[in-house]
Design a protein around this nucleic acid. Structure first.
Lengths: 223, 223
DNA sequence: AAATGATTGATTGTCAGCAATCTCGCAAGT
DNA sequence: ACTTGCGAGATTGCTGACAATCAATCATTT
């Protein structure tokens, strides 16, 4: 009998980690409302653990900007505004542009093939109106590039912004359109040609176009 | 007897916050060595508190990238390498460049005067060889611009990188020279003239010059 | 009626202790 | 000498409880 070689160690999630992931999800999807006061005993009861792992999870959520802790008073979910998209896209885009520029010099063909595959799935999701899937594929696309850039500080800062992007999606502040498909293709081509300049320019101006579209859609919405 | 009006509410620091600040300082200044295994009972004893606030502080330090937690095993101080400067400057600079570009459109004259004042003190610190003071003034200079940009995501990402800059200083991986004085002056002038393009360009290329100088100094050091 | 002070209950931050797990050292077997 | 197995001790994650503090409510004074 051959020894199995394709197993992985089963991951036991600590109570803290479970609490963190669950509360984060509740905040992102709006179950826990902006400005809502969080009571750690209630959360502990809801999740079937003691208050300590809840408090540890809240430290992490505070560091992420999803809650604000007022010592001696309580913990509150941070606010989310429609216009936050206006604020998050510039830093996110310059970081992604930087990652793309760095990756252009070192990326391998296999990863480029992966990007093409992701963009095909992204295109399909856009065309079939599956916007959540499209968002996740957009994140995957950029995350692969960030990973290839191999700079822990870029990875850290981008990943600190990503959950906020997801939250904005749930508050209907994110719009992905067919234009993004073409942009991804331009990035892929530029990466194949090791064209740093185009990589950087496209990724950096992407947010300007996204904001224009956002305003166009918003104006229609208000009419 | 007039009622005092210039007092502020005395800030009581929670045990958690005190622990966080102290352990962070120990990591930054090398008291706690890279790769060192941290034992929360020892830290608790050293700081005269129970383990709970230590564990909460460690969550924050983990989120900051100063420690890595291995569930069930222990917590370890992250490594620091001389060449980390090569990795942190690009993202830090693009974020600072973005902040400068945004601030160029909205900054007031009072803040510009403040920048001039800070740069004078920075110049003095450089010329008298007080490099720690110079670093702190450089941080102050950029932080004021980031504050004026009024974008919480830029503030958050920049401030997540700053403590790492300080740590690299203590590991002798940061060098500030007289060139920075001139650069600051170029930024100030461009801000006064609302010249976004120059703001952005200078702040974004600053790290290339800083890395060149770093290599020049490193080569001399190895001779 | 409005302002002030006192009281009460809830919540937060922390403590001490318990159980589970991990690591290390020692002993036994090959 | 090297490998394997076991046990002990240390450490981690978590629980339940306590004390301090805050906010809300009630009572008293103006």
């Amino acid at each position: 009998m051959p020894i199995p070689t394709d197993f992985s160690t089963p991951q036991r999630l600590s109570a803290k980690k479970r609490a963190f992931l669950q509360i984060q999800e509740w905040i992102i999807d709006g179950t826990l409302k902006p400005k809502e006061k969080l009571n750690d005993a209630d959360l502990a009861e809801a999740l079937g653990v003691s208050r300590t792992p809840i408090r540890e999870a809240l430290q992490l959520l505070g560091a992420q900007g999803f809650v604000e802790m007022f010592p001696g008073v309580g913990t509150q979910v941070t606010t989310v505004n429609h216009d936050d998209i206006m604020k998050i896209l510039p830093p996110l885009s310059v970081l992604q542009a930087l990652a793309t520029e760095i990756a252009a010099e070192i990326i391998d063909q296999q990863s480029i093939n992966q990007l093409k595959e992701i963009n095909e799935q992204f295109s399909h999701a856009i065309k079939t109106g599956n916007s959540f899937a499209a968002l996740k594929l957009d994140v995957q696309f950029h995350d692969l590039i960030v990973e290839k850039a191999d700079n822990p500080y870029i990875t850290q800062t981008v990943s600190s912004l990503q959950p906020h992007v997801l939250r904005l999606y749930f508050y209907k502040a994110i719009i992905l359109t067919e234009s993004s498909i073409d942009e991804h293709n331009v990035i892929i081509k530029a990466l194949e040609e090791k064209d740093k300049e185009t990589c950087s320019r496209v990724a950096r101006t992407n947010w300007i176009r996204a904001i224009d579209e956002y305003f166009t859609t918003e104006n229609k919405h208000h009419e």
